[in-house]
Structure formats: C-alpha cells, structure tokens
Nucleic acid binder design. Structure first.
Lengths: 200, 200
DNA sequence: TAGTAATGAATGAACGTTCATTCGCTGGAG
DNA sequence: CTCCAGCGAATGAACGTTCATTCATTACTA
C-alpha cells in the first residue's frame, strides 16, 4: 500500500508539472524533457505512466473538465429559480478559476484542439448537455431570453473567460465585488426584461 | 515595376500560408517547411522576406490587429449615441470575423503569447486605449453601467469570441438574426436599466 | 535474491536556419 | 536580332540542435 502510494505520487507530480507547463506554453510549446525536469523525474519515467505526450494531454483535459464540472455542480441549487441558479453557477465557476488558475488556463488553451481524442470531445459535449436543460427550463418560465441555449452558453462562458484572461493580463482585479458586478451584467443580458423587472 | 510586383506576391503568399496554418495549429504546432510548402516556395526563401519564424508571427499579429481595428473604426459613428455606437461596433466586428475567419482565429490564438514582441504588445494596448474614451463617455451619460471600462471590454469581446468559437465548432450558425439577438443580449447586459427602458 | 521502478544515454526524425549553388531576367556588345 | 555577362532571387541540401520515444542498465524494495 505504501509502495502504491509512492507510485501514485510520482504520477501526480508528472501531471502537475504538465498542467502548469501546458497552461503557460501550450501543448506544442512544451517538451517532454521539460515536463520531466519540472516533475523531478527522468524523461523515461513518464513513459511508465503514460503512453506518450498526446495521451498525457488527454488525461489532463478530461480530468480537469470533470473536476470543474463536479466543482460547480456539487453546490448547484437544482430546485432553486433561474436567477439563483445562474448566480450559483457564476460564483462557483469563478471560485474554481481562482482556486485552480492553471486548470482554467489549460482548459481554455486546449479546448477543441486536434490532438484531443474522441473521448475528450465526448467529455466536452457531455458538459454542455448537462447545462442545457436548466437553460431551457428557465426559458419556458419566461425568465431567460428565447434564443438558442448554445447562444446563452457561448456568451456567458465567453464573458467569464474574457474576464479571467483580462485579470491574468493585469487589466482588472477579480475581487468579489467585481465578480458580483459582472454577474449582474451577464444576468441582465441573458434574462428577459420581465424577469429583470421582477427582481427590482 | 512588374518585377517588384512579383516579389511582393511571394511575400504575400508566405503571409497567407502562415496565417492559415498558425490559425489552425498555433505557432509551435506549425513548422517553417510546412509554411513554405503551403506558400509554394522553398524553405530558404522565407528567410529572404523575414528574419525568422518569430518575426513572421509578429508581422502577422500587428498587421491583422491593425486591419481589424481599421475595419471597425472606418465605419464607426463617432458622433452618434452610445447605443448606436455599440451596435455599429458589434455588427462591424462580426462582419470582420465572417470576412476573415482565419484572421480572427489567429488573433485569438496568439493573443498575449510570450513570443510576441514589445511592439506587438503595444499594438494590443493601443487598441484598448482607443476604445476606452467611448465607454467612459457613455458611462458619464448614464447609459452604460458604472464599472471599470476594462470589465465592459472583457465581457463584450469575450462574449463575441465565445460566439465565434461556438460557430466554428458547429454549435451555432452566425446568421444576421442571431448576431442581432446577441447584440441585444450584450447591450442589455452592459447598459443601465434606465437606458434600456428609454429604448422601448 | 528476485522482481519491479527508475534512470538517462542513445536513437532517428524533425526542427529552424544557413549558404553554396542554380535560375532567370536584363541590358549592353557584336 | 542574337548572344552572353552580370546579378539578385530562389533554391534545397546540409547544419547543429532538439524533439519524442526507447531500452539496457541501475537502484530499490520486499
């Protein structure tokens, strides 16, 4: 057991190093020896744990997409109204972004890239599918504007990623107050005027 | 004269090939011989026109950022009200994205990357600086929400990029009607309730 | 001591870049 | 009009380096 633990520690060190380097330099901009050095192992050791560089980026991609999804959904108010659900989603995703900044950078950088395999694309698709019913339900209640759910997702996540990137470049500072302001902006964009008025 | 024309054609062929490959595969994912092959020239020829791969990506970055900026500003209604200005900005940027899809993908892919030089970063900064006064003016008139202008920019451009990417992945189709819907969503997000009500 | 985990030098392919050579046009001589 | 010397543009083989990956060897554990 103690031995198995040791083995898993080494695997984890490799994954951590790879996440950080991929997030900063991208897949093609990062070399395997570089990952090995940062992880504190020999280059050959990586191939005891992964089939190769592509397999490694796919393991990372799926792991962090599922982690992000789980992180948000673990506190999602399934029975609450649309406004509260949107607020929870928004706040929780920023909490994730601030807790795991490398993971957010990695996921954005490697989104839909050609070296991701079918299983990784499926993880991506499943994530969107989980979200869609909540949007449709809110639209049926007349609280979200009646556009394609994909448009709501693209705008919301796009705005969120835009803010995270802007913060990374030093143009804004992601304080709780600013995140709340941005939440209000985003909600008043996607919600119907009626729903917005009801809130007042 | 006719000879000089020929020379410039070759330079342009290299830039076109590089734009397309960088947009699809990224900087590190594209090799110089690959660019040469796509441009229909020998690898060595590239070095008659550019100092190297890094110089090439910087030339492309600055060229397309300035082109995009010029494309939008050439029809910008400087004296109109904030709502009309936002509409013009939004529509014109989508027009650019649909006219030069590779350029938009390239600019997004290579934004703020470590191989961009100081001059390219300056081009980036100047672009934001041009926009800021219009946002501040609209805020003074009480038509845009009173948050940091950078937040308005990050959310607006983030949402726009989110839509363009979603379209590239086949999740939505960028019809004029959809672009107009998205414009309305974005404007009702960043504008004050008072300004939104006035429009009705 | 047996067996597995880890190593890092070795490998061949591919990288960005260079440069000796070739190509193709131009303008003056015959 | 024909020829070819001169010259910059274009080439692609060759360079040294670095890449991802392999594997014979070593180190460690049980």
């Amino acid at each position: 057991m103690a031995k198995k633990k040791f083995v898993e520690d080494k695997r984890q060190a490799i994954l951590d190093a790879a996440l950080s380097l991929f997030a900063d330099q991208g897949f093609h901009g990062t070399s395997v020896p570089q990952i090995a050095q940062k992880a504190g192992v020999a280059a050959g050791t990586i191939y005891r744990y992964f089939d190769g560089k592509e397999a490694m980026v796919n393991v990372l991609y799926r792991h962090w997409r599922e982690t992000a999804q789980g992180f948000v959904l673990s506190e999602f108010p399934v029975t609450a109204g649309p406004r509260a659900q949107f607020g929870a989603y928004w706040q929780r995703l920023f909490e994730f972004a601030l807790t795991y900044p490398k993971a957010i950078a990695f996921l954005d950088f490697h989104h839909h890239q050609p070296y991701l395999d079918a299983k990784s694309f499926e993880t991506e698709r499943a994530g969107r599918a989980t979200l869609r019913p909540f949007i449709e339900h809110a639209q049926q209640r007349g609280e979200l504007k009646a556009v394609q759910p994909e448009v709501i997702m693209a705008i919301t996540i796009g705005a969120l990623i835009g803010l995270v990137k802007s913060a990374r470049e030093g143009n804004v500072k992601l304080t709780p107050a600013l995140i709340k302001e941005a939440e209000e902006i985003c909600w008043s964009g996607i919600s119907t005027p009626a729903a917005a008025a009801r809130k007042k």
